[in-house]
C-alpha cells in the first residue's frame, strides 16, 4: 500500500513538474531559463500580441481546431450511433480499425499522409492538417460518444416513436438532448487535441504554421524562450480548463440520464 502511494506521488511529480516550471519561468524577469529566479514580471505576456507571425499561427490553429472538432464529432456521432443501434457483419473488426489511430504512432500517420498527398499532387495547407487531425481525433470522439449512446435506453427512442414522432424528430427531440453532454465533451476534447498537436501539423502544414509548429521554430532563438513559456502557460491553462469542462459535461449527461458512472474517458 505504502510503496504504491509513493509510486503514485513520484509519477505525478515526473508528469507535472516540467509543466509546473512553465508558469514559473513565464513570470520570471530574465531571458535565461535558470534558477534562481530573478524577479516577477508580466512583460512576456504583454509582448505576445506584438508578434504578427504568432497571431497568424494562433488564428490558423484555432481555425483548424474548430473545423477538426466539428468534423470528428460528426463522424463520431455517426459511428457511435451505428455501433450502438445496429448489428452488422464485421462490426467488431470495423470498430477496432476505426480506433487504431488512437495507438498508431503519429509520426507514421503523418509521414504516410504526406507521401499520399504529395503523390496525389495536392498542396499542403490548413485542409491537409485538418484531414490528419480528424483522423486522430475521431477515435477519441467515438470513445466518448459510444458510452453515451450505449447508455441510452433504446426504450426512450421507442417511446417517442410510440407517441407519434418520426425517427428523425425522435433523434432531434430525445436522442440528441440525451447525448448532448457527450457531444460537447467530444467537441472540446478534439478541439484540445487538434490545438496541441505537433507532429502531423509539422509535416502537413505547408507555409502557414500552426501554433505548436510556430513555437517549435522559435525555440532556436533564446531571446524568445520566455515568450514561448508565457504562451505555453496560456495553452496549458486553456487545455486544462477545456478538459475539466468536457468531463463535467460527461458526468452531467450521466446524471441527467439517471445512470451510474461506468467509467469514462478521463
Amino acid at each position: 500500500m505504502k510503496s504504491l502511494r509513493s509510486y503514485a506521488i513520484l509519477y505525478l511529480i515526473f508528469l507535472y513538474a516540467p509543466i509546473a516550471l512553465l508558469p514559473i519561468f513565464a513570470f520570471n524577469d530574465a531571458t535565461i531559463i535558470a534558477f534562481p529566479l530573478s524577479g516577477f514580471t508580466t512583460q512576456w505576456f504583454t509582448e505576445l500580441p506584438q508578434i504578427p507571425a504568432l497571431i497568424d499561427s494562433v488564428k490558423n490553429s484555432l481555425y483548424i481546431a474548430v473545423i477538426t472538432s466539428i468534423l470528428s464529432t460528426l463522424l463520431g456521432i455517426c459511428a457511435a450511433r451505428a455501433a450502438a443501434k445496429y448489428s452488422f457483419r464485421f462490426k467488431r473488426p470495423i470498430m477496432g480499425f476505426i480506433m487504431v489511430p488512437l495507438v498508431l504512432p503519429e509520426i507514421i500517420v503523418a509521414v504516410s499522409l504526406l507521401v499520399i498527398l504529395l503523390q496525389l499532387g495536392l498542396s499542403l495547407g490548413a485542409w491537409t492538417v485538418i484531414m490528419g487531425h480528424v483522423l486522430i481525433c475521431t477515435p477519441f470522439c467515438i470513445a466518448i460518444l459510444n458510452s453515451a449512446f450505449q447508455n441510452l435506453d433504446s426504450a426512450m427512442e421507442e417511446a417517442a416513436i410510440d407517441l407519434g414522432e418520426t425517427p428523425w424528430s425522435t433523434f432531434r427531440l430525445v436522442t440528441l438532448p440525451l447525448v448532448s453532454p457527450a457531444i460537447i465533451s467530444a467537441l472540446l476534447i478534439s478541439f484540445t487535441i487538434s490545438l496541441d498537436e505537433f507532429i502531423i501539423a509539422f509535416f502537413l502544414t505547408g507555409t502557414e504554421p500552426t501554433l505548436p509548429v510556430y513555437l517549435w521554430s522559435q525555440l532556436r532563438f533564446p531571446a524568445r524562450i520566455p515568450v514561448v513559456m508565457a504562451l505555453g502557460t496560456i495553452l496549458v491553462a486553456g487545455s486544462i480548463l477545456l478538459l475539466i469542462l468536457a468531463e463535467m459535461m460527461r458526468r452531467r449527461g450521466l446524471r441527467r440520464a439517471g445512470l451510474q458512472d461506468k467509467g469514462g474517458f478521463l
Binding site: 426504450a155 417511446a159 417517442a160 410510440d162 441527467r256
Partner: peptide
C-alpha cells in the same frame, strides 16, 4: 404500418421517462 401510425400506446418496462 409503423409504430407511430398505430392506434396503440405503450408503457415500457423501464417506463422510458424522458429525463431531460
Amino acid at each position: 404500418v409503423p409504430a407511430n401510425a398505430r392506434p396503440t400506446n405503450m408503457v415500457f418496462q423501464s417506463y422510458a421517462i424522458f429525463p431531460h
